[in-house]
Structures are given as structure tokens and as C-alpha cells.
Design a binder for these strands. Structure first.
Lengths: 341, 341
DNA sequence: TTGTATGCGTTATCAA
DNA sequence: TTGATAACGCATACAA
């Protein structure tokens, strides 16, 4: 129970080692060029003895570098995000950065608040954002004021920042193609409200293109509220009603929707894939467990995180490369739910 | 494309408003007591115009407060952790703190590294740790040097810090009791290596106590490697072999084990609950989906996060209350997998 | 009601 | 090879 040992400062180290703090500072920053072995050793000794660590704020104040990267995700509890954050963290920590994670709950005003608070006080050197899509203006502004920004998974309307996503369009098309080849005559598109979410929109677009529907008149697009299981079930029933006598399947726009859909199908006692096929994003752990196995698309979240981190750090270090979109490959796992006998 | 607009400082605001920076500082900190409406307005105007935000490092350097709380979790990708982090974040953000999240991957040396780097440079004001259990010494040291620490979910050997967990012992006992009442004659305990993980150890202890087994000679304790599905299956078969002609069930020590066990059972084509019952931690989304529904224990991760955040912040604000363990209630969801007809 | 001067712990410039 | 000193941006004790 020591009373309250004040953290040692560079001055204490200096006086204990009987050199100036300039020398200590040199030592700490590895500038040994003109330093005698003698003093080097002495300093090392004192540093160890005091267990001295330089104060980050003083350093940051001087250098204008915090060693912090801000990460703004829409929903940290989704496997996509938590794996993304892990990828970001792994890369950043390796390079000596720490990450500040904030969770917007898909709420644009929270997003706004966090963005402002993170860059406002010079807190972070760069930003990785999984945006709600409703703060393009603010992001633009922050970017033009000099904060390096990288978008993860969801793009902005105008390409302005490096954007790491997966090949949403191509993968959706390939999956629908697989459905056709499997023999499904009608495929519905189940989605949450698409709002400004670019991934959802692109998947939707790929769906419309594949079946050559006009935007206004696609018969089997269902926007569902995943928290309302009754409504989900009703949508499934409506789709079935519209496709009597045909083979049919549901494509889920994301993992949450896929879960809700499968839940509904199980509840209705329908048999997959004969009564109805199912596939979609995302390939979460349970997809193999529910008989007959749910076909699902695995996104490279971890790699997205890694790549996003790599790009912000490059920008922080001065890269002026033109902003570009990087599409990482995802993977369709075909299972029983889309395998018609 | 403005060239590079330097961030405004308090000095710029001062000169533009034609008052001293002291007055600006007062204004920024809401000390309006003796300030004329006139200057107040003028300053407000300039602040808005310049879009000025005080520099956090300078503030931190002065005040020795970073507004940052460090969160060290063992595995951010597990639902338990990501929900925990969300709870922590929600509470902290509300109180004006940001959180720095680090992920140890259950690796004690990474944990050590992050702990040191987080508190080392005065970076964080407090720490919430979901510890691997292998750094008790370091945690002790950091704590005694003045860093407020709260443990989330996993306790240390000696009670030294506030520890927020759920009622592991009681819940395990209650669940086993439910199994007995359901008619299961033998219940196995499936676990990952227990190591220094306090939650696993406590659940194990509750199991031994319930069946009055001596620590050394519990016949149905299986330590499995969840990545090795063959081995998992062999353990299940071994258990079945030992209990021919009896009703039996498996208790899984956590969500990862539960998943592996269910996967094995499905693969073996066994019927739940008749061939074998299943229950355990954790109640993740898929538990209702796998027929006949998997009985599972839901942990209050979010509340653990909230409470942990509340405690660190209280400590940061000077609370000297004696360290204590807070056990939050968890909930057993009984489903088909433990309902013998 | 407002301003002056000093210090927080570092790093960098210049001089020795 | 080393040291004195100024500066980073802000908050505060003390003066006015």
C-alpha cells in the first residue's frame, strides 16, 4: 500500500541519471548515434529501476500523433463487425496503433456524434468507418480537413475514400445463378429496409438485374422487420401463395435476415429445399447445423479489417494514392437448403 | 482543396474574439459565472466560425485525464465479448469516455503487452479486463500503482478488484437439477481446457459438487479440443459407450463447446433428447433453430458490461469501496433437447 | 468581469 | 557527445 507514487517523468530520470533530459529523450527515441555506451547503460538502468514510461499526452502534444485510430461500426454485436474489428485490431496493434471502437447502433446521429468527438480533439489519426450511409457530408468534410478515412464494407455515394468491400454484385449474381441451375423457378429477395446501406442496395440491384426486373415491378421483393416474427412469417406465406405449383427459394440479404427467414420456415414446418429453398448472406456458425444445412455466403470480414487498417495507416503515413474500391472475394457454401433432388 | 488548414487553437480563437485565452478557456469549460453576455456571444460566434475543438492532448496533459478506458477481452469475436463491449461502450460514451479495445486471443503474453501499453503511457484512466487468468501478478501491480481495474466475467484467484460475473455456480447447479428432474440418469461435463479460466473452473466445481464426485474420479468429464471434430465425436461416443441402457445428457461449459457438441451429435445422427440430451452455456441465436431446440443458459453479457463500466468510472472518480464480486443472474431456457417424453 | 504568467512532460533547435 | 531552452495547446493561480 504505497501512498500514491507519482508516475516518474523524464525529469526524474534525468536527475537520477545525472544527465539532461535531452539526453534521456534521445535515448528513449533510439538516437544512440553520438551517445557514449557509458551513459546509455546508466540511463537504461535508471529507466528500468523507475519502471519509467514516457507520457503519451506530452508526446502527442508535441508530435500531433496520438497512435490512435478510430473505428466506427454500425453494430458491434454482429459477427461481421466483431470479426472486422478483430482484423483491424490485429493489423493496427502490430504497427503500434491502438484502436478506439465506437458503436452507432445504425443511428446516424450517434454516428455523427462519435465522428465529431473522435476527430474533433485530434483524438485519432485516422478513421475506419462502417457507415450508416447518412453522414456522407460530414465524412466528406472531415476528409477534406485532412483526416485519413477508409470505409469498411459500406460505400458512400461518391467515391471519395478508399473503400474495402466484398464483391457484392458478383457474388449475388453467382448465387442466383446457382439457384437457377439447381432448378429454382422463382427466387424472392428478402431484405431489411435498405435505406442508405450500400451493400444491401448493390445486392438488390444484382438481383433485379439477374431476373431482368424493372426497379418498380419486381414481384418477389420483401422488406421485413426481423424483430417481428409474425410479419416475417406472413411474408414467407405471401411468397408461397404467389408461386403455387413452382419451385421457389428465398435469398436473404444478410445474416440477420437469413436467421429470421430460417426461423420462420422452421416455425411454419416447411421442408427445405422442397417446399422452399433458402440461401443468402452470411455464413454464420449455425448454417451447418440446421438441417439440411443452409447455403450461405461467407464474407471475408477479417480480411476487410486487415486491408482497411493497412490503407488508413498508409494514408496516415502520407500516401496520396487516388481513392479506390477494393473488392475482396467472398465464398458461397452450397448446402442442402438449395440442393433440389 | 484547401492547402492544409491548420487546426484552430485557443490562441486563434482568443485573438479573433479579442479577448485573452483565459477567457476562452473559461468559456469552453462552462465557467460563465462572471462573463458578460456580450463576450460570451462573441466567443460563441468565433468558435462556431472556426469550428474550433479543444485539443485533447493538451487537455489531458494538464489534467492527467485522458477520457479513455481500456478494455481487454480474450476473444472479441465471441458473442459474449462483443455484447460485453457494447454494454461497456454504451455506458462509457454516455459519461463522456471513449474505450480502447484490445483483443488478446486468449494469449497471456499479448494480454501482458496490451495491459502495459495501455496504462504505461497514462493512456487510459481505467481498465476493464476479461482476463486469461495468467497475469494476476501484473494486474495486481497495475492496480496497486493506482489504475482502477474491474474484472469482467473472469475472476482472479484473490479478490482484489471489483469483479462482475454471472452466477456460474448456482446456475450450473440449477441446470443440473433440471436435468435430473427431466429424467437424465447420467450427465457428462464437456469442457475446453480449463486452465486459469475462473468461469470454467467454477462451473466444473458445481458439476462435481452436484453429483458428489471426488475431483479426481468423475467418470464423465471430457476435455475436448473444439477445433478437432473427430475428437469431439469420439468423446461423445465414449460417453455413450459408458452409459448403455441409461438416459444421458451432455452439459457444455460454454457456447463454443455447445456448438461443437451439437455439431457432433448431428453428424452422428443421434436423436435429441432420446439418444442423448444436451444443454449448457451459451444461449446463442441458433439454439432455437436446431431441432428440437437446444436448452441453453443465457448470460447477461450486456449487463455485465454496463456494470463493469459503472464500477470503473466510480473508481476513477475516487470510490474507495471495498472490492467485491457482483453476480448477475443468468437464465436457463429449457427447450426440446432436455425434454424427455 | 478579464488578463498575465506559469506549468503539464515531451521533443527539437541550437549551442557548447 | 551533451545540455539549455523554447515550444506544443490548454488550464489555473493570482492580479487587475
Amino acid at each position: 500500500m504505497t501512498p500514491k507514487p507519482r508516475k516518474p517523468t523524464i525529469d526524474m530520470v534525468a536527475s537520477k541519471s545525472e544527465v539532461s533530459k535531452t539526453t534521456i529523450s534521445r535515448f528513449l527515441n533510439g538516437k544512440y548515434e553520438y551517445m557514449s555506451e557509458e551513459t546509455k547503460k546508466r540511463i537504461q538502468h535508471v529507466v528500468d529501476e523507475l519502471n519509467y514510461r514516457p507520457n503519451n499526452f506530452a508526446r502527442s502534444l508535441k508530435s500531433n500523433k496520438s497512435g490512435l485510430i478510430g473505428v466506427v461500426v454500425a453494430d458491434i454485436t454482429s459477427p461481421f463487425s466483431s470479426i472486422l474489428v478483430k482484423g483491424i485490431g490485429d493489423f493496427c496493434n502490430e504497427r503500434g496503433y491502438q484502436i478506439i471502437t465506437t458503436n452507432t447502433d445504425e443511428d446516424p446521429s450517434k454516428e455523427r456524434e462519435y465522428l465529431e468527438s473522435l476527430v474533433g480533439g485530434e483524438m485519432v489519426e485516422g478513421l475506419i468507418v462502417n457507415t450508416t450511409g447518412k453522414n456522407d457530408d460530414l465524412l466528406s468534410q472531415l476528409g477534406s480537413q485532412g483526416t485519413p478515412i477508409v470505409l469498411a464494407d459500406r460505400a458512400m455515394e461518391h467515391l471519395e475514400f478508399d473503400t474495402i468491400t466484398n464483391n457484392n454484385y458478383g457474388m449475388t449474381r453467382d448465387t442466383l445463378n446457382h439457384m437457377t441451375e439447381s432448378g429454382f423457378e422463382h427466387v424472392a429477395f428478402f431484405t431489411q429496409a435498405m435505406g442508405a446501406n450500400s451493400s444491401r442496395r448493390i445486392r438488390h440491384e444484382a438481383y433485379l438485374d439477374f431476373y431482368e426486373y424493372e426497379p418498380g415491378d419486381a414481384p418477389y421483393v420483401y422488406e421485413i422487420d426481423t424483430n417481428n416474427s409474425r410479419a416475417v412469417i406472413e411474408s414467407i406465406q405471401a411468397f408461397i401463395g404467389q408461386t403455387q405449383g413452382h419451385t421457389r427459394a428465398i435469398f436473404a440479404v444478410n445474416g440477420v435476415v437469413l436467421l429470421a427467414v430460417v426461423r420462420g420456415i422452421v416455425e411454419l414446418g416447411l421442408k427445405m429445399p422442397d417446399d422452399i429453398g433458402v440461401c443468402g448472406y452470411d455464413d454464420w456458425e449455425w448454417a451447418t447445423l440446421v438441417p439440411p444445412g443452409i447455403s450461405a455466403i461467407e464474407q471475408p470480414s477479417y480480411q476487410v479489417g486487415l486491408e482497411a487498417a493497412k490503407r488508413v495507416i498508409a494514408r496516415i503515413n502520407g500516401s496520396k494514392a487516388k481513392a479506390k474500391v477494393i473488392e475482396l472475394p467472398s465464398k458461397l457454401h452450397v448446402r442442402g437448403s438449395t440442393t433440389l433432388k
